[in-house]
């Protein structure tokens, strides 16, 4: 059981630490995003170290957008030396999506090149082949878009296999609301061999559900789910119930785990956990 834990936009870590502490025993590790959607906030390394220091395991995101190969390797050494055992590599959204539109993106390494660098470091060398004084060891995750079909799914699966060859041990999917919607993906993947961890996103409102249903490609939100929120007297409560039910369904289906994402509503994680039947 994973839960996303966004580091703060500032140095006040009290809310993040309180939210994390409330579910400490029930969450195996907190996924710490690296400035998701290109919105500037505390780095994943900083957030992960703070959580680790307080006895909470983390999956630290490593992002190609903001750091060149020197900085990526340097941060991986810092993470490895500080007890971070799980990382998740991501390409990162363009700065145009975030709150610093004028920033220059880096993208020195592609995702596969970063994976190659991680493998080299685990084998005791940096990207230039120079020996490391002690090598880090990580369980490495990445993303896979399970919502695709037809030709797009074929290329996603080929990329997934490439990532596995490059050392990826587990995959986290984009938000999943309806297991039936990823049938094409599931028919091509052996869940007992490839660890797949779907994301369960907490919808925050009817508007968010409608917006995602209409505008977010490859994420299927069934109409009845939107109607259910629409008809509920307490919509926020209903959204928590839906998230809990989705977690339950995913657990029953034989996935390797589930990652709860609440994008800013981390205080709702205990409610979701409490409602999982």
């Amino acid at each position: 059981m994973l839960a996303e834990m966004e580091p703060p936009k500032g140095v006040d870590i009290s809310v993040m630490m309180e939210n994390a502490s409330r579910v400490k025993g029930e969450i195996d590790a907190f996924v710490v995003p690296e400035m998701s959607n290109a919105v500037m906030r505390m780095s994943a390394l900083g957030g992960a170290l703070l959580l680790q220091k307080n006895g909470m395991d983390t999956v630290m995101q490593v992002c190609c957008r903001d750091r060149n190969r020197l900085a990526l390797q340097a941060d991986l050494l810092a993470a490895g030396a500080s007890g971070v055992k799980h990382i998740m590599v991501v390409t990162g959204e363009d700065p145009g999506f975030g709150d610093h539109h004028q920033a220059k993106a880096v993208y020195d390494l592609t995702l596969l090149e970063l994976l190659d660098a991680i493998e080299k470091m685990e084998n005791g060398h940096d990207m230039s082949g120079i020996d490391l004084c002690g090598s880090p060891q990580f369980l490495v995750g990445s993303t896979v878009n399970a919502g695709l079909s037809a030709q797009a799914l074929e290329s996603e699966l080929s990329e997934m296999n490439q990532k596995i060859k490059s050392g990826v041990d587990f995959f986290i999917t984009p938000p999943l609301f309806d297991i039936a919607s990823i049938k094409p993906f599931l028919s091509c993947v052996d869940l007992s061999k490839t660890p797949i961890i779907p994301t369960v996103l907490l919808l925050k409102s009817l508007g968010m559900a409608r917006y995602m249903a209409r505008n977010v490609k490859h994420v299927h939100i069934p109409d009845e789910l939107v109607r259910r929120i629409q008809n509920a007297p307490d919509k926020a409560r209903e959204c928590v119930n839906i998230a809990a039910e989705t977690v339950h369904a995913i657990k029953e289906h034989g996935f390797s785990g589930v990652c709860i994402s609440t994008i800013g509503w981390e205080d709702k994680v205990p409610d979701i956990l409490k409602n999982i039947s």
Partner: peptide, 12 residues
């Protein structure tokens, strides 16, 4: 001022 790199290749 800090340069606006969005007009550079950084902006796509």
């Amino acid at each position: 001022p800090i340069k606006n790199w969005s007009t550079d290749r950084a902006g796509g």
